[in-house]
Design a protein around this nucleic acid. Structure first.
Length: 830
RNA sequence: GCCCGGGUGGCGGAAUGGCAGACGCAGGGGACUUAAAAUCCCCAGGCCCUAACGGGCCGUGCAGGUUCGAGUCCUGCCCCGGGCACCA
């Protein structure tokens, strides 16, 4: 008897699929489309089961949707620019391009070995000029619309390497290559994309994603955009006529409690404020400016400030307040300055306690129990204004309204909405990325490269040392050029783009991947978009998805697409762990994908990946459990192999079955099969609980086993029907085995055109149900009753049940709860 | 620090507010075998009562609450994981 040999079966069917071009997507407006996409993978070189989970989920969905008759687009490509290639070059001297392409080959080999149903004709790689020229093209379009601009901003600077470091290259405040060198902050001129031009829309359109995206991702996006309503208020500067400091506050009602004004260490007014100040003050300020750029570091760093020696004037009451500069005030948020109200803001409270600034209560709690000297933390709730001049005794809400109105009338304030969202800093002082298509000309300034000169090619054979400014700056044949405007000698921009640029629009390119006239043909994109199902890690819940949404809106305003949002449904899968932590090369806990395929076959590896946990949860990889799944597939193969010979010539019962003439065993088999089909379909299509649907298939197989010998009381057409349903239900999970089983059962032509089986309510119907009898919510008995029995009858039988009766007899029945076919609960008193 | 998520047997997990632990792994017992592997069948949350059949009580991170009924809903807490704008 032939054995299940996954390796040969898998090779056999992959060859057939290749020859048939089985997964090639053809743009065809006459057919309903389904675009399913897994997030663009970074080809990192160590290919483990953590990566494969994402593709396995996507492939199950793609295959299921094809079986439902959809025209499925399921593409793949490579996020092939980025820091690791450059780090490898610095550390091992490999050329980024060679290193990257070798990794891509390996990843591609694994994807093919796993039989993922990608349309390989649409493969893209973002480091190829055919792709990144369109990054440049989009960048120029944004520049034309005022959405790309330059400004100074902070980077991590290693004074030893004389180079800019990524956050990842900063190890506990030091440089990754020599950790004893502290990293400094340095301000340089960089390119930004104006994501904030779409703040309101990015926030409002989240409503369109409701229901299709995980609620937690939408929440994170909302928080990230961080819309807050408040007021901008000007403080005069004592002794500097005409100068003013504008602060943003959501709690203008606490302004009488302000005991200082604090500006960011980089605040432009500081130059004026500190003119003639002591050297010590300037030195302290410079130290503050050196602090880390990272929000997490800022938030946990001890609050530090410097008194400027100057005073601001609160224009509500003329009070003079010291002006400080402090590390917890951010230049990029609001106006870069705050009023410091220690009694009612926790950060201000901590700052004032440290520097002995006064605390003054101006909002009382309902008990009126707040006393400044006794406070252990700020009181940040709303309450009743006190010590606030004419605004005393108002509720916080009323005070805010009245004070804004008065500030507007007196000309020193206004209502203001601000966002936490920042513009997207896109410059990288690195080699392995898309060159920014601009030229610096001594006479014309910053000049865009004309479209017909795109792409600006990234030069190859560049020596990477990890030292000095942007690597491209040391490639004369790249840097030296002529100004497109005046023709004089000019210098190319040597920064490259953030790789998030690549991944913000790549899914549009899949629709029309070989277009050399435009990023894509809008008509083709409008057929395939929006993406019906996007699948990826929760790690991308904010940045990648926010940038992609921004890009979509820019494209829409450029007239390239007609939709507002690129992704209709989003699914975030969990991480694959080994030994409690995410698989990674550096931790040495990877389970290599190719090894799994060789050991148990890709079908078993895929099945286990889906069976082990619901897809959104993290899963711990267990070698033993993989074997369990492999065992199940062997069991299924043996079961069908045993019967296939006798069934090959039979015709499956399908809709032609006469239920009245069916034997009890036939009915039982069909009932179980159709009950399974109903729940498997629901778990696969609606709930995305692949694990429980696989459990159901295991139950079905167990039940078929228990019904052996099958032939005794069941006709071949019924057995064949049930086996075919089993093969088809397995197909999204174990496509190779399903093809083989389908063929074993005597079907020619493969599964390519075969539809998902049709569910029959009649065949699935149970004749009897077990009903639980509860008394006061506790299980006291159970009974078998015919399906669909009425409530009265159910209650009557429950009360008469010998086990339940003693708990009811002699007591007053207060309430009866009946769940038909399931449960009766008798509530008794006393 | 801020934002988001998660805690159910020995383990992975199952359960539209309705029998907690389906299915699988590991474990125990049996069949087959000269033997082992493979395969097939059975048992299996904890504690207690019973010779046994059976039966009782407890149990979903902790403490409360809503409900006839809570793993599921609400409030507070504890622990663990992810993100925080130059890793992708």
């Amino acid at each position: 008897m032939p054995e299940y040999e996954p390796q040969s079966i898998e090779a056999k069917w992959q060859k057939v699929w290749d020859e048939q071009g089985a997964f090639r997507a053809v743009t065809d407006p006459a057919r309903p489309k389904y675009y399913v996409l897994e997030m663009l993978p970074y080809p990192s070189g160590t290919l483990h089961m953590g990566h494969m989970r994402n593709y396995t989920i996507g492939d199950a969905v793609a295959r299921f949707k094809r079986m439902q008759g959809f025209n499925v687009l399921h593409p793949i490509g490579w996020d092939s620019f980025g820091l690791p290639a450059e780090n490898a070059a610095i550390q091992r001297g490999t050329a980024p391009r060679d290193w990257t392409n070798a990794n891509i080959e390996e990843l591609k080999r694994a994807c093919r070995r796993f039989g993922f149903s990608y349309d390989w004709d649409r493969e893209i790689s973002t480091c190829e000029p055919e792709y990144y020229r369109w990054n440049q093209w989009f960048f120029l379009r944004m520049f034309e619309r005022g959405l790309a601009y330059r400004k100074k901003s902070k980077v991590n600077w290693c004074p030893k390497c004389q180079t800019v470091l990524a956050n990842e290259q900063v190890v506990e405040g030091g440089c990754w290559r020599h950790e004893d060198t502290p990293v400094e902050a340095r301000e340089i001129e960089q390119w930004f994309l104006k994501t904030t031009a779409y703040s309101d829309e990015l926030l409002d359109d989240i409503a369109q994603l409701e229901g299709g995206w995980p609620e937690r991702v939408l929440l994170m996006q909302r928080n990230w955009i961080g819309k807050s309503r408040g007021a901008k208020v000007k403080f005069a500067v004592d002794g500097l006529a005409g100068a003013g400091i504008e602060v943003f506050t959501t709690r203008i009602d606490t302004i009488y409690g302000a005991t200082a004004v604090i500006v960011a260490p980089e605040h432009p007014l500081l130059a004026q404020l500190l003119a003639g100040a002591e050297q010590g003050t300037v030195a302290q300020l410079n130290r503050l400016r050196q602090q880390s750029v990272r929000e997490a570091d800022l938030a946990t760093a001890e609050k530090e400030g410097v008194f400027t020696g100057r005073y601001a004037v609160n224009l509500f009451n003329g009070e003079k307040l010291p002006i400080w500069a402090a590390n917890f005030v951010l230049l990029g948020y609001g106006t870069g300055a705050v009023m410091c109200v220690p009694a009612h803001d926790q950060r201000d409270f901590e700052f004032c306690r440290k520097y002995d600034l006064p605390v003054r209560v101006v909002v009382q709690n309902p008990e009126s129990s707040l006393v400044a000297e006794e406070m252990g933390e700020a009181y940040t709730d709303y309450g009743r204004s006190v010590n606030s001049g004419p605004y005393s005794n108002l509720s916080s809400g009323d005070a805010i309204e009245k004070m804004i109105a008065d500030a507007v009338a007196r000309g020193f304030g206004e209502a203001r909405i601000i966002f936490r969202l920042k513009d997207w800093g896109i410059s990288r002082q690195r080699y392995w990325g898309t060159p920014i298509p601009f030229v610096h000309c001594a006479s014309c300034g910053v000049v865009p490269v004309p479209d017909d000169q795109l792409p600006v090619l990234l030069p190859m054979n560049v020596q990477l040392t990890g030292m000095g400014e942007s690597p491209l700056a040391r490639v004369p044949e790249f840097v030296n050029t002529t100004c497109p405007k005046c023709g004089k000698r000019a210098r190319r921009e040597t920064d490259t783009m953030d790789t998030f640029m690549d991944s913000s629009w790549y899914f549009y390119r899949y629709a029309d991947p070989r277009n050399d006239k435009a990023p894509f043909d809008p008509a083709v994109v409008n057929y395939w978009f929006p993406i019906d199902q996007y699948i990826g890690g929760i790690v991308h819940a904010i940045l990648h998805l926010m940038y992609s949404r921004f890009f979509c809106k820019v494209m829409r305003d450029l007239g390239l697409v007609t939709h507002d949002e690129p992704v209709k449904r989003l699914f975030c899968q969990g991480t694959v762990l080994k030994g409690g932590t995410a698989m990674s090369k550096s931790k040495g806990n990877v389970v290599a994908a190719m090894e799994m395929a060789e050991k148990v076959g890709c079908d078993a590896a895929r099945l286990y990946t889906l069976f082990s946990a619901p897809p959104e949860k993290d899963m711990e990889w267990s070698e033993k459990d993989v074997e369990g799944c492999s065992r199940f597939l062997h069991r299924v193969f043996r079961l069908l192999e045993k019967h296939a010979g006798g069934l090959r010539s039979a015709r499956a019962a399908g809709a032609t079955l006469d239920l009245a003439a069916a034997s009890e065993k036939e009915k039982a088999l069909l009932r179980k099969a159709h009950q399974t089909l109903k729940r498997v379909t629901h778990d696969l299509e609606i709930r995305w609980h692949f694990n429980s649907s696989i459990a159901l298939l295991m139950e079905l197989v167990n039940e078929i086993h228990a019904a052996e010998p099958l032939e005794r009381d069941a006709r071949p057409e019924v057995i064949k029907e049930v086996f075919q349903m089993l093969a088809l239900m397995l197909a999204p999970y174990t496509p190779h085995l399903s093809e083989e089983l389908w063929e074993m059962l005597g079907n020619a032509g493969g599964l390519g055109k075969v539809r998902w089986p049709a569910y029959s309510e009649d065949l699935a119907r149970e004749e009897q149900h077990e009903v639980v009898i509860q008394v006061n919510g506790r299980v006291r008995g159970r009974m078998f009753v015919e399906s669909g029995l009425g409530e009265e009858e159910l209650v009557a039988r429950a009360i008469a049940d010998p086990k339940a009766a003693p708990f009811v007899n002699g007591k007053r029945i207060v309430k009866r709860i009946v769940v038909p076919d399931k449960l009766v609960n008798i509530v008794v008193a006393g």
